[in-house]
Design a binder for these strands. Structure first.
Lengths: 207, 207, 207, 207
DNA sequence: GATGAATGAGGTTTCATTCAT
DNA sequence: AATGAATGAAACCTCATTCAT
């Protein structure tokens, strides 16, 4: 009575993983559905069963990426209460997440490029900008908390948040470009220092 | 019977300008040669006269971008001798250049994505990484000069250079995403402050 | 452990009914097996249990259509002995049958188109032409009887039969096209009059 | 300066002719674009240059069919003033037109089936019904003229027109089915007689 | 008996590139 | 030198059919 029983969720994940590998190899533009099907070990038809179009596959992979990144970041920062530590961990977690699977960082900027709003109104990853705005707001919240605790200088917290994310993205890009070392710990350390040394009230400074 | 005299260089530039507009509208992936031909007001055949292939067109536009950016940056920094000022101007000039023509910033990350080395060895803009390395070296040179003059803390100058470029790129991305204001002066100011406040020796500090 | 007892005949009919609805909605070309399965409330596998292929389903529906039409026509004409009445009833019965289920008339011309012999020798409904020939023969028989009884003019009875069926089909088509009213009684009346007034010996005429 | 010069109109016609041949061979459903391209002696790309989609090709061929039929019918009836003659010629011209090119009559009922309004609102040849209504109106006009001249019985002229077209279509169908002879003269004669004998006032009849 | 997940052959469509004019 | 009509390789996607459960 019941047909073949499959864990559709798991198979979807499997395909997404395979897709990310293909994206990393060939770039978001120019990847072929058949390659993803082969990489996932399924037929073309099956691929379309799970993702009704090429765009849906890309969007689906990006959403999965967003969700997993969000969970990872939340888990990393979650228990912490100290703003300084929160920022340090957020930066660290970002690098850990993107470097854990080399395929990710090679594709990150494909996602970024695909998420930029186009003049013609259509952007493949229309959720990127809203998501980014949420991230800025979140980090700005941490900065505000730091200011309230008098750990951070009084600053435009949104601008500070924006710049913190900017350095992370920028360094991520250079890792992809292979102009800096792909060392999560090192990069996080250097960035945190730069960001926080320009932010934290030095002991010998007066408000 | 004298052959029509055409300024090939000028027409090439014309086509490149048109191409950049098309890139901004449709993204690097997904743009069509016919669209560029139409935007440039020339026939498809003529387009191929100037750029023998689609890839050549993309690469040509990117190289033009690099050259112009380089000239712009050199002109901005050229006369200056103070490292602090040099860095300020470099950041400022970057934003001025990219914001002067809105099409540019919408395409910047398409270029970036297209320049990331792929697993399969092939990258459309293979010159991006080397160029980026030269930029890092250049900025590192300025930082070293600042250290020598005892204006900057003793730091890993390559890492510092890398992070300076990182913030610029990262903020550029957010401008494209429309999550921060596209205000060259403001962004340059904020970034310079953050970068330099974490770099410059505070008056009350001792070496 | 006794196998579920199913009335296969009834389920077959159920599927055919559902199929006719789908045909009417999407046309014979372009209908999908899955749509029929859904409309019939069975799985795709089950559908194939009853109709081993798409063509079989179409042919099966058409044969069912033919059989039911034949029974309906026979029942209508059966008891009558007067040729004039037989023709009137035949025409009337045709419209009643096709208009009873709106899905039928919308599909009739799909069946007709699918039954036309193709240059390549293959025709999906290869039984349509033979069946049509039998119908012509039958009507010609009625006409001959009318001639024998001196109710009809001496005519080429095959040609007359052919034209009687032609008007019926033609008006059926216009009902489907919605250029004439879908009123079985009215259409049958008008057609019968035209056909018979051109056939029946007028009272004041001499043989 | 000027590229290859082509008579686009003529090439369009060429492709349409080829398409009609293919339609006749394989039916409207199930014909393949590549077959039309091969039959027309052009590449697949060229075919799409002239007809942007498969549907456009079908619609384009049908429209051409409508236009040519209209011209042919107008030319045939044009000079005549006598309603009886007009109807005779209209019927005659219809058969001449459809039998002149055997491909046409094999495809006529594919067009008819494709023009029937579907439950889902979409009909491939949405112009068929309006066109058919215009034809009915035209013929009704002739019938009215005949009534005014007291050549025809006082009748519902629209109903009469509808039935005249119905017989023509019906017989056309039987020609395609090969159940009656494909003889334009014969069919037109028989139909005209039946139609007019049921319409014309017999000499010995009184109004 | 019933089901629907899986499949891939096959069709439609796009678009970079060529080349006759 | 300039053009755009022609082309076909290559990609996307559909859907009839199968078969493990």
């Amino acid at each position: 009575m019941a047909p073949r029983i499959v864990d559709k969720r798991a198979k979807r994940r499997l395909i997404q993983k395979a897709a990310l590998k293909v994206f990393a190899r060939t770039g978001l533009s120019g990847f072929k559905m058949i390659d993803v099907a082969l990489a996932a070990g399924v037929g073309k038809g099956t691929l379309y069963e799970y993702f009704p179009s090429k765009d849906d596959l890309v969007v689906g992979c990006f959403e999965e990426f967003m969700i997993e990144f969000g969970e990872h970041a939340a888990a990393a920062v979650g228990a912490l209460t100290d703003p300084t530590e929160q920022i340090r961990r957020l930066i660290g977690a970002s690098f850990e997440f993107c470097l854990a699977d080399r395929a990710l960082i090679d594709t990150l900027f494909d996602f970024y490029a695909a998420g930029i709003p186009r003049r013609d109104g259509h952007s493949l990853l229309s959720q990127l900008a809203p998501m980014y705005r949420r991230m800025i707001a979140q980090v700005a919240g941490i900065v505000d908390a730091g200011i309230a605790r008098k750990q951070f200088r009084v600053t435009d917290s949104r601008a500070a948040a924006s710049m913190i994310l900017a350095v992370v993205d920028g360094v991520m890009f250079q890792i992809a470009l292979q102009t800096v070392k792909a060392d999560a710990g090192l990069q996080a350390e250097q960035i945190s220092d730069m960001v926080l040394n320009g932010l934290v009230i030095a002991n010998n400074e007066t408000t």
